[in-house]
Amino acid sequence: MTTKSLRAPASAQSVPFTFIDLFAGIGGMRLAFDSVGGRCVFTSEWNVHAQKTYADNHRDNRPLEGDITKVHTDDIPDHDVLVAGFPCQPFSIAGVSKKNSLGRKHGFEDETQGTLFFDVARVIAAKRPAAFLLENVKNLKSHDKGRTFEVILRTLREELGYHVEHAVLDGNGFVPQHRERMVIVGFRDKTSFSFSDLVLPKKGSRKLSEILHPEDGSETAEAPFTEGPFATVNPKYILTDGLWRYLQGYAEKHRAKGNGFGFGLVDGDGVARTLSARYYKDGSEILISRGEGLNPRRLTPRECARLMGYPESFRITVSDTQAYKQFGNSVAVPMFSAVAKHMMPHLAQVLATPRAA
């Protein structure tokens, strides 16, 4: 049995373009933009474990940059598309009139200073790429009572002059997982880009059976995830009696209080909850049923990679703990491949337009 690929095909409308990968993680967005013909010319990621995974899978003849806050824009190459999954932080917004009275700036340099979005904004301001794609959690819109999103959109539209569209998209259908993310796309020039005509697969059309180890010998064993002639899952991923009792008791306690907290027990016919960076702790959000009377198990890191739409060739060269964190922090690759493909004709239009002096 060969696990079905969850990656979107490369776009037939691809145009040659360059892009940079900020807050790159392990390169999920990189894979999406590679798939539509892009060439990555700069990467920044501060976490050393994510740097290792990225470097082991994206063999570039250039070093990865670390902390983007320490990189001067003169050291970032010109590029056509900026891609960033920046962390969400609150902004402190004071009234423009008050700032004027104090003789202070009230553009993005002041409003976003001290946040990681500032570093996205300063690169866009300096390099003026034809387009950008920004990704964040779905709650970005309500973060800090809506003020964070307000500043982001005002900065991108009014301060930087880009034409911006945004939408919350769910990876469910691209992968067998509920995974909602805020996606923000901007173009330097006016285009007809809209999320309304982005074709999305039917939710629930992908099942967990597509990404689970078959354990029947049809898959080659991959240590330490699977072992033996039938490539069965390593017993270390099965919950201990103590942990399984604890999770059941925890769930029952909250059910009695009318809360929805508890574990997520699923089988091959289901769709998983959102994989989180805390999965390494107890795996409670996605537990795989092994049948009645048997303790469930966690997903293996390889199954997590598949659940996020990474290709089978993707190398997992870090500890299980780090791998769980990395995939839990990553993006559903085929969903962003679809967005990148949707951007291509609009990007071609902007690249064909002479740039204003």
Rank of each mutant, 00 (worst) to 15 (best):
C88H: 00
D74H: 15
V83D: 00
G28H: 10
L116T: 05
P63Y: 09
K98Q: 15
Q89A: 07
D78M: 10
R122H: 08
F118C: 06
V120Y: 02
G66T: 12
Y54M: 06
C88D: 04
F132G: 05
Q13R: 13
K52Y: 01
D34R: 13
F91D: 03
N100R: 15
T69D: 05
K99M: 11
F23T: 00
A32K: 03
I20L: 03
D110R: 12
L31Q: 14
I93K: 06
T43Q: 02
K127R: 11
G85I: 01
K99I: 02
D119A: 11
K98P: 04
V71F: 10
V15L: 03
A126M: 13
V15W: 05
I76P: 05
P63E: 15
D75G: 01
A50I: 01
G25D: 03
P9I: 05
S44K: 03
F42W: 09
V96N: 14
D119I: 09
F108M: 01
I68D: 00
Q51D: 09
D78I: 11
L133N: 02
F117V: 01
G66K: 13
R59C: 05
K52E: 07
K127H: 08
I20G: 02
H49C: 13
Q113I: 12
S14A: 15
H58R: 04
W46G: 05
V15S: 04
N61L: 02
F23D: 00
C40L: 02
D34Y: 06
M29A: 07
G107P: 01
S14Q: 15
T53I: 09
D34I: 10
V120A: 03
P16R: 05
G38D: 04
T53G: 10
S35I: 00
E111R: 15
